[in-house]
Design a protein around this nucleic acid. Structure first.
Lengths: 382, 382
DNA sequence: TATCCATATGTAAGGGCTTACATTAAAAAC
DNA sequence: GTTTTTAATGTAAGCCCTTACATATGGATA
């Protein structure tokens, strides 16, 4: 039996080679045919040609029906629509995109889409974009520069109509490092959330992190705290603003700041325990602090955790202010005072700006919203 | 001056119409040229033709270099790569996709990408997919059926190679409502995370939520709690499993359950205060409970909040178990015992299954992982 | 009735890429 | 030195749409 099979197989190959068809081609057609994908045999998919044939019209007419173009009689329209329904036809977005050079897609870049704040931003963007007929291509890049570059190239090759950089860590202090954004902006509009960068075709929407942090620090000082620790985990553009806000507020209050009073946390953004541990370590290394102002709610929460573990009375003996006013602020006990930077507003504004740019309107290159301190249990009420 | 302008403009139109160019065409070329997009004049973008010219080779060779195909001499390769670098060429993914009928893109559908758990899942998927050379098209659908349908159609017309449905709320109790998934699966493989559905080209990866909940309830009972409130906010597939796990565990322990002991929370998934308020209301309506088992960490956290507000000693007088073992579990004080359903493992498995399916391998239609109770401060250690 | 238009439909040319097949040049075998 | 093989490159067709322009058809206008 086995022998017979081999034989007949050989026979076929022989017969075919007589017609000068290569074995490779043979394999191609009979074995590794690319129409066999995903476990389903993809029957040659339905195209406008099939529709045009079935409806007895030209492909141009079909296309016109699909695009709701003018000058198609009701009768033909009906015929075409029926044919579409019968065949279950879906237009091929590639072919369309190739012709139109747009796929109505916006690339969204975020370092980490699971970060509470960024996730929220992505959600708002996706929602707004969809409402405007655009889709979102999501790329999470991590925090390394070269991955960000690669992701942008990829988005551009996918012909996105615009790029949104979610979060300030796309803009670097060193100007040269931002070249990759300028390059991208030569091809499509680039939108920055919570970061600023001058450049043609670059638009920025951000919250005034400097002012927010300056004000928050000021409030802590006013309510009697002088030994304030600044706790941060990002060297981003807005990170720098926040830090400056803290420093300036301290300086303006005549309080000097030693460097180790600014604590950088290197671990992951969710590691509440690690954060609390770092505060503990800092304290036992001799630094005295009875208040923490954090660049992020998670950091703020860890400070609450630390203070509770030390038995401090919050907010009388120990105060904490977080940043972003995320749901986390409601989770600790006492609840966390936090700076709300109006994320939803920012995202809406950014999207509408992008839409304006895409339709050729003149749009503001820079929009800044101011934040607001939401007072909860970790600071004294004024 | 104004007049002069008008005049010269008229002159041009006249001159051109003499060559029989329509006004429409004129407008097309001079005013609404589609090459003028996003405020930047999109110079006719670089194609392989430009590269081939500059490198002095054929387009086929350029393509071969781009695809790392065999049989290109080092010398030509270098020439081509230089030309690419010089021109800043990026391949047009549409054209590529049109030929290959794939854009190496997977559609990710989630009801709400800002939900802590779903966001994490999306993050893992994005990461895994990228590692496999695929991109992610993200659609957030909300929780309404018809929006889910529309989103799927959209993804299919964008020729995604597969679809991942993140979260169990894509599968409905009523079989007829799931037709839309079966339809999608006729075109591309559909992957379900934390849900199950029989069907050709549908693959499910989930955690054993029934067993986890059964076990967790059992532990609460064993440590002496009988008045357990089940707190949930989702009527999803896995939601039903969890509920059954709870009910069966109670029944098997000989404890009868009244319906209002199962509390459904209708508000948003982040509204910790609303959740706590509902527990408060339930208690003051006369239901006695000294333990809460929650279908989600946020719900669990709200129970901790409630218990603290009542002055209960946790975990001795009041115990809580959450679900998902998210970062929230580390945020409360005491920290929340929670069920870890191995999200990362699930996502990895799901992605690798999808990759297998896409390359034509036979893959398991259903994979189930069991969860694990991570004991923290809201339950007594065993 | 002859002329002109508006409306409805068709024809064909891209758009940028991949790839089977054809061709050429160089190396290996004779 | 001639023939065969192999490696390197080129040619051209096809992927499925959109749309400018050409054509056909009927009705309104002169």
């Amino acid at each position: 039996m086995k022998l017979l099979q081999s034989f007949s197989c050989f026979y076929i190959i022989f017969a075919v080679t007589a017609f000068s068809v290569s074995i490779k081609e043979l394999l191609y057609y009979f074995v590794i045919s690319p129409t066999h994908i995903g476990g389903v045999v993809k029957e040659h998919s339905v195209t406008i040609y099939d529709i045009s044939e079935q409806a007895g019209v030209s492909i141009a007419t079909v296309s016109r029906v699909l695009n709701n173009s003018s000058n198609v009689s009701e009768a033909t329209k009906k015929k075409v629509l029926n044919a579409i329904k019968d065949t279950g036809y879906t237009p091929n977005a590639f072919a369309r995109g190739l012709g139109l050079n747009t796929m109505k897609t916006i690339g969204i870049l975020a370092a980490d889409s699971s970060d509470l704040y960024l996730a929220k931003a992505i959600y708002y963007f996706e929602e707004e974009l969809r409402a405007n007929g655009y889709d979102s291509l999501l790329c999470c890049t991590g925090y390394a520069l070269k991955d960000k570059k690669a992701a942008i190239d990829l988005l551009i090759s996918k012909k996105v109509d615009g790029i949104i950089l979610v979060g300030s860590n796309f803009v670097y202090p060193d100007v040269a490092d931002n070249k990759y954004i300028l390059n991208a902006a030569e091809k499509v509009p680039v939108m920055l959330l919570n970061a600023e960068l001058e450049g043609n075709n670059i638009y920025c929407v951000s919250s005034d992190d400097y002012k927010s942090m300056y004000k928050a620090t000021g409030e802590l000082i006013e309510s009697g705290f002088k030994n304030i620790l600044y706790f941060y985990n990002s060297l981003s553009y807005s990170g720098a603003l926040k830090e400056r806000g803290f420093r300036d507020a301290m300086r303006d209050a005549g309080i000097s700041v030693v460097e180790r009073q600014l604590q950088f946390f290197e671990g992951t953004r969710e590691d509440v325990h690690g954060m609390a541990a770092q505060l503990e370590k800092t304290a036992s290394a001799g630094l005295k602090f009875n208040a923490v102002i954090a660049a992020d709610d998670t950091l703020g929460l860890s400070a609450v955790k630390y203070a509770l573990s030390k038995g401090y009375k919050i907010p009388e003996e120990f105060s904490v202010i977080g940043y972003n006013n995320s749901m986390l602020a409601n989770c600790s006990e006492p609840e966390l005072t936090s700076i709300d930077n109006k994320l939803e507003t920012l995202c809406q504004k950014l999207t509408s700006t992008l839409m304006g740019v895409l339709s050729g309107e003149e749009m503001p290159k820079k929009t800044v919203f101011s934040g607001e301190i939401v007072t909860r249990g970790t600071t004294k009420a004024k």
